[in-house]
């Protein structure tokens, strides 16, 4: 293992300036032998700092797996994930946990607020876990921006879905994270709340240059992003800048058709579009990077 940093990891990147997080030749298999599922097949992708990136694709295409691997929730089978200049595939469980606590924000599809705590307690939970005092000013600015100032003393069960997701966004941002990962953040919301949440994420990126990576299967949601990747069968098959809803719907439909055809033919899917150009894979080390 390399000298792996932990909570004192510096914010300065040492790979490409402007790259927040980068996957290098990442492979993720579930199971072994004939029954193995290849969730990610040699994925190379870099995410720019201060950008809102959407990852799209049909169910089982590997888009969620990529997010799990990028955010340190799951290990890779091979390859490297450069986060903030460090290869997090060499991190142990504790280092990964501290990295997530201090540098990553999560927004979940079903909010995942802790029912026994109030909204405010939920928001400051990452700081509580770190044993740090919350920055009251930042907390109230977040609450004001998200329109939940008067709901801070309520428990999640007393909040609407949209309000709960806004509390979750506040929780994701309370630590000033390096990257915010959002996993189908509008999946459990009605259209009005969805629009609100997506607009907030957009504004967040525009106003604070927060890096946001969002997994979604909704073309309309992807249209809020600066860039959209389309996944199919463990590979990136499209990389679109300034996506529109129509373009993304089209791309996803294409994938569905080819996937269906391939399923009938029983052969692996061929990429429709070349994979996005990424910085040349720098072999940081040859460690198999397994925890």
């Amino acid at each position: 293992m390399t000298a792996a940093p932990n909570a004192t990891m510096p914010m300065a990147g040492m790979v490409t300036a402007g790259t927040a997080i980068q996957a290098i030749d990442v492979v993720k298999d579930y199971g072994t032998g004939d029954s193995a599922v290849h969730a990610l097949r040699h994925v190379n992708v870099a995410f720019e700092r201060g950008k809102f990136t959407a990852i799209m694709g049909p169910s089982g295409s590997g888009k969620s797996t990529l997010m799990h691997v990028l955010s340190g929730l799951d290990s890779v089978t091979s390859g490297h994930v450069m986060f903030n200049g460090y290869d997090i595939t060499t991190f142990n469980d504790k280092q990964l946990t501290l990295m997530r606590r201090d540098y990553v924000g999560f927004i979940f599809q079903s909010f995942n607020l802790l029912p026994m705590f109030t909204a405010e307690q939920n928001i400051v939970m990452p700081l509580t876990l770190a044993g740090k005092k919350p920055d009251k000013q930042w907390l109230h600015r977040l609450a004001a921006d998200l329109g939940i100032e008067d709901r801070l003393d309520h428990r999640p069960s007393e909040l609407s879905g949209g309000q709960q997701q806004r509390v979750a966004i506040a929780r994701a941002l309370i630590t000033h994270p390096h990257v915010v990962f959002a996993d189908e953040p509008t999946g459990a919301l009605d259209s009005v709340s969805s629009t609100e949440v997506l607009s907030m994420l957009r504004r967040l990126v525009d106003e604070t240059s927060q890096t946001v990576i969002m997994v979604t299967h909704d073309a309309a949601a992807a249209a809020y992003a600066d860039r959209a990747l389309v996944f199919s069968d463990g590979r990136i098959v499209a990389d679109v800048n300034h996506p529109t809803e129509e373009r993304m719907s089209e791309l996803v439909m294409e994938q569905r058709h080819s996937a269906a055809k391939l399923a009938a033919a029983g052969a692996p899917a061929a990429p429709v579009a070349p994979a996005a150009p990424v910085t040349a894979p720098t072999p940081v080390q040859n460690d198999p990077a397994r925890r």
Binding site: D93, L98, R100, L129
Partner: peptide
């Protein structure tokens, strides 16, 4: 399970 996993995701160490 779900709550524990959430806490782990947002930064609770297994020791905690």
């Amino acid at each position: 399970q779900r709550e524990s996993a959430t806490l782990r995701a947002i930064g609770m160490t297994s020791g905690q």
